[in-house]
Amino acid sequence: MLELQDVTSGYGTVPAISNINISVPQGACVCLIGANGAGKTTTLLTISGLVRAFSGHIKIDGVDHTTMSADRIVRGGVSLVPEGRRVIASMSVEDNLLIGAYVRKNGPEIANDMRAVYNRFPRLFERRRHYAGSLSGGEQQMLAIGRALMARPKLLLLDEPSMGLAPHVVREIFETIQEINRQGTTILLVEQNARKALSIANYGYVLEKGRIAAEGPTEQLRNTDTVRDAYLGMGQAIESTSQAALG
C-alpha cells in the first residue's frame, strides 16, 4: 500500500533521512524504530506532505504522493497521529473529533464514526464537552488517535504514541492500535519504545542517523544483535552503540 523509494528529505537543505526504502503492505502493521534524531518523525512528516522530499518517490496504492499537498494526502486516506499528540487544547473533545472528519461530507456517517470512537474510548465520551487541554496525557493520545480515525484512513501513521505515558496507559494504547489494525487499517508506527513496537508489528525497520540500518519480520529483527543491544536494553547503552555505528 505504501512505498517509499529512495526518499531523501529534511529541513532547509539538510537531509534528515537519506535514500530510505520502506514498504508497508495492505493490512500490515509496520514499525519504524530508532534513537532520538534518527529521522523517524521526518519520515512520517514527509509521507504526510508536511515536509517535502528532496528526492525519491512516495507511492500510496501505486499513486505518486511525493509532491501532493497535505490536505490531498489526507483526502487520499492517509492520517497522521502526530508526535506530542497535538490535540487542539482550546476546543472541546467533540470538536476535536469533528475537525478530524473535516475532509468528509456525509453527516450521518460522521455521526456513526463518532459513536464508534466513543465506544472505543469511553473516557472521551464522558469528557466530550471538556476542553481537550484539560485531558490527561493518555486521554489526549486517545483523542489524537480518535481524531485521525474520524478521517477514515486506509493508512494510519502513528508518531511515538507511548511518549510520556504511564506503562498501563501505554499498554492500553498499544492494544487499541492492534485492534485498529485487526479491523483492517494499515499501520505505520514510529516508536522509541522498541520492545512495545516490535511486540505488535509484523515487520520492522531500524533507522539510524537517517538511514535504514536493519529490517525484517519482527520475530527475526528482535533476535538480531544490533536491535537487541541497542534498542531492547539488553546490551550496552544506546550511546556506545551509536558510537560503534559511527565507526
Binding site: V74, R86, A89, D95, Y102
Partner: peptide, 21 residues
Amino acid sequence: SLGRAIRTVAFSEDVARIVGV
C-alpha cells in the same frame, strides 16, 4: 465545519494540515 477549520489554523497550521484543512 468552516469555523472549526479556522480555529484549528489559529491553534496550529501544521495540525490544520494534518486533518486536511
